[in-house]
Write a protein that binds this DNA or RNA. Structure first.
Length: 411
DNA sequence: AATCCACAGGAAGCCCGGGAAC
DNA sequence: GTTCCCGGGCTTCCTGTGGATT
């Protein structure tokens, strides 16, 4: 067959065709390079606090603060590895288990993961929590060693039963004979301690390290380093990296964002069969990332909010110059009937509109139209076309794709 | 100056699911 | 297992309000 012959080997040809990247992994934020630019002082600070562990003493517990993409995780993991390495050389056993509390978000899961890290086999559910706790304690205490537990995204534990685990871990030393435990907590939330139990607060926050956001110049250095590893030589135009850095710096200096931007720029360029990455590609990549983020937010919206958003889009497409709460509400009620869903009250819808506003999907502001009342004026903050497609992906809203709004009545 | 529209947005309470305590 | 409690989503009822209109 004709088609078959022209398409056979399609994957081979696509595989070969990676003219721009040398090692794409190096451009992901999960990659740990051997050097971490502009975090020397933080690394030194942490190292100073942790050095006692190499002398067999117990280092202070540490809380690390900083916004996303400031290198908290990568620096902690780096220093953990260095510590274990050095410990091995001078035969002081140190282990540095790493846990992400967004994934392991209950007392049970944390303890069972810790127990597993020390070779215990704990079922993922079933045991009473204190049995798991004892299991971990026993395993940890089997030989003399220093254990430094890294708890990433520790703020995700607050409010759950997580306060408990923090309290238990911070006191575990009094129950151990051979080993010593200390904790490194990592948080995005600068106000973390306000939410903590005061006992936990004082023991956990013995030392505090703050990671400040990178500025554009520092981001540039990071990108340069990674680009050297990730891209082939000479495929980046001169202003690509500075532009990526500048765009990411606008977003509170998020290195993760900067790296994503650079990598996606490369992908965009590749897809366009360009043999260099240009500023144009960066701008496209930026739009793509933004659009993907929004699409993701919209996709995970509760159904009622989706329906509400759909109403706004319909009104917007009908060409209303100003959309008010009342108009949205009447359209929304029609749509509810069309897909046979419960109708919420206007009070609630008003709140949902404000939520969408906070998410940056809508823009609503309160205006007074004098005799004609006070209302919210609502505008789409993002292009509706893409959003509409995402909304129609929802099974419950499929039928709406050919729904027609009644024509605007002319006064 | 008084009126009055079309809502905003606060307060209280209902309902329900899920986890902790008994 | 049952009971208790909590938080989130939601309704009901409410008071408040900026400015065009009267």
């Amino acid at each position: 067959m004709d088609i078959k012959s022209s398409l056979s080997g399609i994957f081979e040809s696509l595989l070969e065709k990676e003219p721009l990247f040398k090692n794409k992994e190096a451009l992901r934020h999960s990659y740990t390079p051997s050097e971490l630019p502009h975090r020397e002082s933080e690394i030194r600070q942490l190292a100073t606090i942790l050095t006692p562990s190499l002398r067999g003493e117990t280092p202070s517990n540490i809380l690390i603060y900083g916004k996303s993409g400031t290198g908290k995780t990568i620096v902690s993991r780096f220093i953990g590895n260095e510590l274990m390495e050095t410990g091995r050389k001078i035969s002081v056993p140190i282990s540095v288990p790493y846990l992400n509390c967004e994934v392991t978000d209950t007392q049970y899961r944390i303890l069972s993961n810790l127990a597993k890290a020390f070779g215990k086999n704990v079922p993922f559910t079933g045991w009473p929590t204190d049995k798991v706790y004892n299991s971990f304690k026993e395993a940890a205490d089997r030989e003399q060693q220093c254990i430094i537990i890294i708890l990433d995204e520790i703020d995700k534990l607050i409010g759950k039963n997580g306060d408990n685990i923090l309290y238990n871990l911070s006191r575990i030393n009094s129950e151990l004979k051979n080993s010593r435990v200390s904790i490194i907590g990592i948080s995005n939330d600068l106000k973390l301690t306000e939410y903590l139990d005061s006992r936990v607060q004082s023991s956990l926050g013995e030392e505090k390290v703050v990671f400040s956001p990178y500025n554009a110049r520092q981001l540039e250095d990071i990108l340069k380093q990674r680009a050297e590893l990730g891209f082939k030589e000479g495929v980046l135009e001169e202003y690509v990296i500075p532009l990526c850095a500048a765009l990411a710096a606008r977003e509170h200096g998020d290195a993760r964002r900067a790296l994503d931007l650079l990598r996606v720029s490369g992908e965009v360029a590749e897809r366009e069969n360009s043999d260099v990455v240009t500023e144009k590609h960066v701008r496209k990549a930026n739009e793509k990332i933004e659009a993907d983020n929004i699409a993701e937010v919209v996709r995970t919206l509760p159904t009622q909010s989706k329906l509400l958003l759909y109403s706004v889009i319909l009104l917007d497409e009908r060409g209303e110059k100003t959309i008010t709460t009342g108009e949205v509400y009447t359209t929304y009620k029609r749509l509810c009937k069309a897909v046979s869903m419960d109708v919420l009250t206007q009070r609630r819808i008003s709140d949902l509109i404000s939520e969408l506003d906070m998410l940056g999907i809508l823009n609503s502001r309160v205006v007074s139209k004098g005799r004609y009342g006070r209302t919210k004026e609502i505008k789409m903050e993002v292009p509706p076309i893409g959003i509409r497609a995402v909304l129609e992906d929802d099974i419950r809203m499929k039928k709406l794709s050919d729904y027609r709004l009644p024509q605007r009545r002319l006064i």
